[in-house]
């Protein structure tokens, strides 16, 4: 069978589908000072599955941690229109489970084009393999 670390090089999704892959990628992102990208991506996935009674509080938590501060790595990568859409959603008593989907897509594209290829070329990944 294909070793997991070779699968990680197939796509970002293959990497994020494996616990060890996530750990190594997160270590790399920490070194680069942008681990929040990955945490935010998972927070968006978790948000969709969160029960309705916790959703409003969680939406605020995600918004405060990653979006409201415009100098943060996540906030800087999300389009102004997307941030303004999230700002409108976050004040509702029953936020839409899909309210972070566009932002998640934008962060995912950024990782696919930038941090993920850099990770595959990094010493960290090469030493691991």
């Amino acid at each position: 069978p294909t070793p997991p670390y070779l699968k990680w090089a197939e796509s970002l999704h293959s990497l994020l589908d494996d616990q060890e892959g996530i750990q190594l990628f997160r270590t790399f992102l920490c070194q680069e000072g942008c681990a929040d990208l990955l945490d935010f991506w998972f927070a968006c996935s978790g948000f969709r599955k969160t029960s309705q009674e916790k959703r409003a509080k969680l939406a605020k938590a995600i918004y405060r941690k990653y979006i409201v501060d415009g100098s943060g790595i996540v906030s800087r990568q999300i389009k102004a229109a997307t941030k303004s859409f999230i700002r409108d959603c976050v004040v509702r008593p029953h936020p839409d489970p899909a309210m972070f989907e566009q932002a998640q897509t934008e962060i995912q594209s950024m990782m696919e084009e930038n941090t993920y290829p850099l990770f595959l070329k990094s010493d960290l990944y090469l030493e691991y393999t």
């Binding site: 996530i22 998972f42 968006c44 978790g46 969680l58 941690k65």
Partner: peptide, 20 residues
């Protein structure tokens, strides 16, 4: 009652794949 940070951390963990 969970703090916002706990809630967020649980949310992130819940979205990650389980151990292979």
């Amino acid at each position: 009652m969970d703090s916002e940070d706990d809630l967020l951390q649980k949310c992130i963990t819940s979205a990650m794949p389980k151990q292979r």
